Simulated scan of single mutants.
Amino acid sequence: MGLLSPVVLPPGPAIWTEESFGSDDWPLFAALTHPDVTARRLTVIAQWDVCLLALDDYFVTAYKLPRDPVGARVFVERVPLFMPVRGGGSVPVPANQVEHALAELWQRTSPEMPTEARERFARWVTEFVAANLDELDAALYGHVPDPVHYLEFRRASAGTDLSVGLTGIRPASGPALRRLEDAFADTVGLRNDIYSYRKEIDEEREVCNAVHCFYHLLGGSLQDAVDVTYRLFQERIQEFIRVSEHETGPEHTGYVTALRDWMAGDNQWYRHTGRYRQGTSRHLHPA
């Protein structure tokens, strides 16, 4: 798809090098978060993981770092055009390599989804990319969100609907499952915010990060903010355990297991990936 090339479909800035892509190790991420799926299913999941992270990293490179809100909105508005829900729908000519990758992967994998599933998945992809607009606006105006508002917003930007959707076994939602998924989403976002703090704040000049939010709100040292974020992370894990053990039934066992496996695999991936080794984030250890 040309994701390692800067000029396959201009104007496409390079988002990864071969070295950085190998260091991130998205195939390992897919395998760890979906340990029991078939090889064929795992391949599709890994390709979607790569495509989604390409969209996310492209947004950073092309729009966040240059502080280009106009271009960013055009980019987000075009995303759903490459995922026609009805079979045989035409798509625009891709303007860059990530649109090219999205169009190709959607054309190849969406026919296997029921129409309702295609509609949901296309909406989740669009919402995942669109969450970057709020982060860009916050960075443009230097607005650090309060932690409560940020936690709600982070559930969308973490892409957890997509993560859940890729399990392929999402049951009909109810109050208990919504609480379970909110706790799951919070653990995903908070873990990432601890590991990615230096990358996001120092390199990408973000302001939307839980550690940064607590640091801005509470003062104290950066390590204090890390520790507060980590305690909240632990509390959300305990909420996930409580809901899964006391508010879900046997019919949800497979789904709960899939989410639990995803959380464990995600945690293990952070211990191996080189994505966040730049800067000094590796020296921040939650107490």
Rank of each mutant, 00 (worst) to 15 (best):
F214R: 14
V93H: 12
R275Y: 09
F121W: 13
V148D: 13
V50W: 09
G22T: 06
E77C: 06
I15P: 05
Y270K: 03
G165I: 01
M263H: 06
H252S: 14
V85C: 03
N132E: 11
G220N: 03
I241M: 07
D227H: 03
S90I: 00
N267A: 14
T61C: 14
A131L: 10
T280Y: 07
L28I: 00
P13A: 10
F214A: 05
A31M: 06
G71H: 04
Q238T: 04
A210M: 15
P286N: 05
W16L: 13
G249P: 13
T38V: 08
A103W: 05
V256N: 08
L218H: 11
A210D: 04
L81A: 12
R198Y: 09
D36A: 13
T33A: 10
E116K: 12
S281W: 01
H246N: 14
A31D: 05
Y150T: 03
R73W: 00
R275L: 11
G165E: 10
S90M: 06
R205A: 14
L180A: 02
A183C: 00
F240C: 05
V60W: 10
V98F: 12
A54K: 08
A14P: 09
W106S: 07
I201P: 03
Q97L: 09
I194E: 06
E251K: 12
H216L: 00
W262G: 00
G71S: 05
T229W: 02
L166D: 04
F82S: 01
W48Y: 13
Q268R: 09
L162K: 05
T61Q: 15
E247R: 01
L32E: 02
H100K: 14
Y276A: 08
V256P: 10
I241D: 15
T248M: 10
A264N: 12
D193L: 02
L180F: 02
R242A: 12
S23M: 13
E127F: 10
V74F: 04
T187I: 02
Y150N: 09
A101Y: 13
V93R: 15
V91M: 14
P114F: 05
I45T: 12
R242P: 06
T61Y: 11
Q97Y: 05
A185T: 04
A131C: 15
T280Q: 11
R73T: 04
V144W: 03
V8D: 12
V129P: 10
V188F: 05
W269I: 01
D186C: 10
V37H: 05
A176W: 00
A39Q: 15
D182N: 11
V91Y: 01
P80M: 07
V44G: 02
W26R: 09
A131H: 07
L53S: 08
I237R: 09
E239M: 09
R118K: 15
E235C: 01
E206A: 14
C208Y: 05
V8N: 06
E152C: 10
V74T: 13
A54T: 12
H212L: 07
G142A: 09
G265F: 02
D224N: 11
D193V: 01
M83H: 06
T33Q: 04
Y255S: 02
F121L: 11
L232T: 08
R41G: 11
H283W: 13
P145L: 07
F29Y: 06
E18H: 07
G12D: 15
L136T: 02
V76F: 02
Q47L: 12
S5C: 12
T273N: 11
F29S: 01
L166S: 04
V60F: 12
V74L: 11
G89H: 03
R275K: 14
L9F: 11
S163Q: 07
G265V: 02
Q238W: 08
T257D: 11
